[in-house]
Structures are given as structure tokens and as C-alpha cells.
């Protein structure tokens, strides 16, 4: 028990390594902002393509979405980070992470938007069009607001996944929270920094996870 506290819950080590983790946390925050922001926009765009009238737009969109859902995000990240330089494209770790996770998450957000938009009865669009709105206006003012509200728990749940996902950036040596914590662990020969990182993730994500559970609708019968 004493060993456990010394190795995992060592307050002295935590305090000593906190500055390092704080920098990591800041990097994680920046990553989240970029990836979530880009993902929400990219996902919407991709979902429109997947619902397009022309099959020449629709089918490629589905192929892109499904391949992105089949490839683990870490594989995509390594591919971009280690592979692109071979094609003469030098890319910073931050850019590699941002691009990889933007692609990965656009696919997930796209599926959520699509489910939401398709859950809105066609009568809503018809009513909007009948009052003289263009189809873009009907989508923007009538369908999308209802759709987003319907899938809010799923959007929230996926956003939690994005935050957790950013921890993979440590694999390509981007100094975000987990990388900093692991660095601190190897410097101090003590796992407390990793536990502290876990607690920091928890502090941000636990409330969100609770919220997801609270608003998760019953499963459709």
C-alpha cells in the first residue's frame, strides 16, 4: 500500500512535474480546439456530400467515410506523420495530428449529422419550401437546427472521443498532456505524473460523460 501511494499518488512528484504537465495541457487544449472546430465543419460538409442527389457525389463520400472509419486514427496519424515526408512533404507534428484527426473525426461527425438530418420528416422541408424559402434556406433555418438538437448527445459523445483521441499525439512526440506526463514519468521513475494526467482528463471529461448519459435518449424501438 505504501509503495502504491509512493509510486502512483506521490503528491511531491506531482507538484514537481506540474509545470511540465501544464504546458502539455495547453497544447492539448489547442489541439482540441483545432480538431473539434475543423471536424464539426468538415463533417457537415461531408454529410451534405453523402446526402447529395447525384450518386457521383454520394458514393465517393460514402467510400471516404467508410475507409476513414475502418482505419484506426493512430494508423492514419503515423501514415501522415511518417509517410508524407517520403513524398517530399515535411509536416510538423502538430499539423500531422491536426490533419489526421480532422479527417478521422469528419467521418464520425458526418455520420451523426446525417442521422440527425434524416430524422427530420420531409414535411418540414416541404413546409419551408412552400413558404418560399430556397432549399439552402430550408436546410439552414428549418432542418439543421432541429437535426442538431436531435443528435446533440451523439455530437457531445463524439467530442469526448476527440479529446481522448488527442492523447495519441504523444506517439509522434507532440508535447501534449499525455506526452508530458510520460516524459515526467521517465524523468522521475514514478507513475504519479501519469495518474495526474488521468485525473486532469477526468476533471474535464467526467462532467461531459455524465451529461451524455443524462441526455442519451432511450434507444429507438
Amino acid at each position: 500500500m505504501e509503495d502504491f501511494i509512493r509510486l502512483f499518488l506521490n503528491v511531491e512528484v506531482m507538484l514537481r512535474t506540474w509545470p511540465l504537465l501544464k504546458q502539455g495541457l495547453w497544447m492539448t487544449a489547442q489541439l482540441c480546439a483545432v480538431v473539434i472546430g475543423l471536424g464539426l465543419v468538415g463533417g457537415l460538409f461531408l454529410s451534405f456530400l453523402a446526402m447529395a442527389k447525384s450518386r457521383w457525389l454520394r458514393w465517393p463520400a460514402f467510400v471516404v467515410i467508410d475507409v476513414l472509419r475502418a482505419v484506426p486514427p493512430l494508423v492514419l496519424l503515423i501514415f501522415i506523420y511518417s509517410g508524407l515526408p517520403f513524398a517530399g512533404l515535411d509536416i510538423s507534428p502538430f499539423a500531422a495530428v491536426a490533419v489526421a484527426f480532422f479527417l478521422n473525426n469528419s467521418a464520425y461527425y458526418a455520420e451523426i449529422y446525417r442521422a440527425g438530418i434524416q430524422s427530420i420528416p420531409a414535411g418540414q422541408t416541404e413546409a419551408a419550401r412552400a413558404t418560399g424559402l430556397t432549399s439552402a434556406q430550408a436546410m439552414a433555418y428549418v432542418v439543421l437546427p432541429q437535426a442538431v438538437r436531435n443528435v446533440l448527445p451523439d455530437l457531445l459523445s463524439n467530442t469526448v472521443e476527440v479529446v481522448k483521441l488527442t492523447s495519441l499525439a504523444s506517439v509522434v512526440s507532440l508535447a501534449e498532456l499525455l506526452y508530458s506526463a510520460n516524459m515526467a514519468r521517465s524523468l522521475t521513475y514514478n507513475s504519479s505524473p501519469l495518474v495526474m494526467a488521468a485525473l486532469i482528463y477526468l476533471a474535464f471529461l467526467w462532467p461531459l460523460v455524465r451529461l451524455v448519459s443524462r441526455y442519451q435518449r432511450k434507444l429507438a424501438v
Binding site: V163, R185, L194, V195, Y201, L205, L208
Partner: peptide, 12 residues
């Protein structure tokens, strides 16, 4: 299980 990144648990 839902709030912690799996990689953190793996490293610990």
C-alpha cells in the same frame, strides 16, 4: 471507462 483515454490506462 468512458472518460479516460485508453492510452493513459495502458501506460499506467
Amino acid at each position: 471507462g468512458r472518460a479516460l483515454p485508453p492510452l493513459v490506462l495502458i501506460l499506467i
